[in-house]
């Protein structure tokens, strides 16, 4: 059987909220190392990779690997029933048809029990190469969300260009064009707002803003986001889960998006 308790149900709620609009159904693979989910959107343009290590959990027991086929919007509906400071326990039998979800308030005076029906999901799995990226930009996740939202006003495709000086987001559409440049900042009052760029060579790629917009729904998870790019490969937009700022969390939520190219 599988049983795991997370001290903050809100963390799981934020994770599922962040992906439920991009991916409807997904298999959460549970093993002794933790919980993992890999799923593509219906057009196979973007991919979500969620890793929750056992360290994140107050209690984690997995006797045998289990695949939990989950309808994410429905899971999100149940997670919304948790209180802000509730803990959450997930339980499933080896061949069970349901996922049990139990919320407990801090003083344990309120216990809510739910069951979510599991599904058989025939999902395609992709091998993501473990590669080093040419460019890694770390910035405020709220700022990234704002830029993506602002770019969407003008068009559907955003160019992201990076040099040592800064990262430039550009868009053009029927009503005109715009661009926003963020300069690399070494000393800022607020650490969370710093922009740091590690790069080998300048890179510029084009991406569909619709998908970048979906990714930014993960902003409440972490004040910082890491954007990784290399020429002609998918961009990675990554958030730590259950960690603080730039420090490695015990989990991560990464989004991959295939670039747009000249036809």
């Amino acid at each position: 059987m599988f049983e795991a308790t997370l001290q903050k149900a809100s963390t799981l709620k934020k994770v599922i909220e962040a992906i439920k609009d991009l991916v409807t159904d997904g298999n959460i693979e549970v093993s002794e190392t933790g919980m993992n989910l890999q799923a593509m959107d219906s057009s196979h343009v973007s991919l979500v990779s969620l890793v929750l290590h056992t360290d994140m959990f107050e209690h984690f027991r997995c006797d045998r690997n289990v695949t939990l086929g989950i309808n994410l919007p429905n899971f999100a509906k149940i997670l919304k029933c948790s209180g802000n400071d509730d803990s959450v326990t997930l339980k499933a039998q080896d061949d069970g048809e349901n996922l049990a979800i139990v919320f407990e308030s801090e003083g344990q005076e309120r216990v809510s029990e739910f069951e979510l029906k599991l599904m058989d999901i025939d999902a395609e799995s992709l091998g993501i190469p473990d590669q080093d990226y040419n460019t890694n930009v770390k910035m405020s996740s709220a700022e990234f969300q704002r830029i993506v939202r602002d770019m969407t006003v003008l068009g559907d495709t955003c160019s992201i260009g990076c040099t040592k000086e800064g990262v430039k987001f550009s868009v053009s559409g029927d009503l005109g064009q715009g661009n926003i440049t963020l300069r690399q900042t070494n000393s800022v009052d607020k650490e969370e707002e710093a922009v740091t760029i590690e790069m080998d060579e300048p890179v510029e790629l084009n991406f569909a803003l619709r998908y970048l917009g979906f990714f930014t729904k993960a902003s409440p998870l972490c004040p910082r986001v890491t954007i990784s790019m290399s020429p002609d490969v998918p961009i990675v937009v990554a958030y730590n889960v259950g960690g603080e700022k730039d420090t490695e969390g015990a989990g991560s939520l990464s989004f991959y998006l295939a670039p747009k190219i000249d036809e």
Partner: peptide, 14 residues
């Protein structure tokens, strides 16, 4: 005009 590529052209199926 920019065309959208698919992830399967970058990542192999497992």
């Amino acid at each position: 005009k920019k065309g959208q590529t698919s992830l399967s052209s970058f990542f192999a199926k497992k």
